[in-house]
Amino acid sequence: MLEARDLTIKYDERIAVTGVSLKLTAGNITALIGPNGAGKSTLLRALNGQLRHTSGAVLLDGEPIEKFSRRSIGRRVAVVAQEAELRFPVTVLEFVLGGRFAWAGNAGWGWETDRDLRVAEDVLCETELVELSGRLMNELSGGERQRAVLARALATEAALLLLDEPTANLDLSHQATLLALVRHRCDQQQAAALVVTHDINLAAQFADQLLLMKRGKVIEAGTPGAVLTPELLREVFEVTVLVDAHPVTNAPRVTPVHDRRS
């Protein structure tokens, strides 16, 4: 569905991402992990066509992404980013309907169709926001707002979801709820998701595939079990970790070991 081949991205002269290849396939969640400044968000922005790559290719359904118009990318790829500060009052429903923009016949003055409203209602149900649909976005709690941002992305009906630290600022239960929704979309509608996250343990539990990055390069890619080894994590994060199996899910569990004596 979405593929990056030998991708290199430069900011001015600085190389942010170099020689990255990855493939997002239907039904799979891929988590992108790595230290700050590894180029994770940059990579995500390039996969959406926002950042131009210096060399390599981004292929959307087999075609170079540059060939698609902004709107047709909007119908295929949805992004969940850190939400911007809202300075104008909008209701949750209006916000979520924004996800239907790319489907409008007339981009400018188009009005929502019955189908748009139905899709919005469905995702509001899915994200448990129905009761809040008439409320203003800036009256919501952080967790509710983040759910609304996800709801808008789901409303695009895009088969590809790119999520940039979607669980930052969320408490434990909301983190799990949010990723469960992404999982559900991947299982039910054969969507593919790429999640940039700092939470390695959450990634280990939800992702089918991990991509470990450092300084713009992919150090290792594979199943959580293959990527989350003490040696690799030590090399990438420069910290000693203990990796054992989660007693319930059996997914790898990473615990940093801070030696107090040193």
């Binding site: 990318i73 909007g74 992004v79 980013a81 911007a84 996800g99 790319a102 981009a107 808008r152």
Partner: peptide, 8 residues
Amino acid sequence: RDAFDLGV
């Protein structure tokens, strides 16, 4: 950025 992502 949001607008761009949504197809504007």
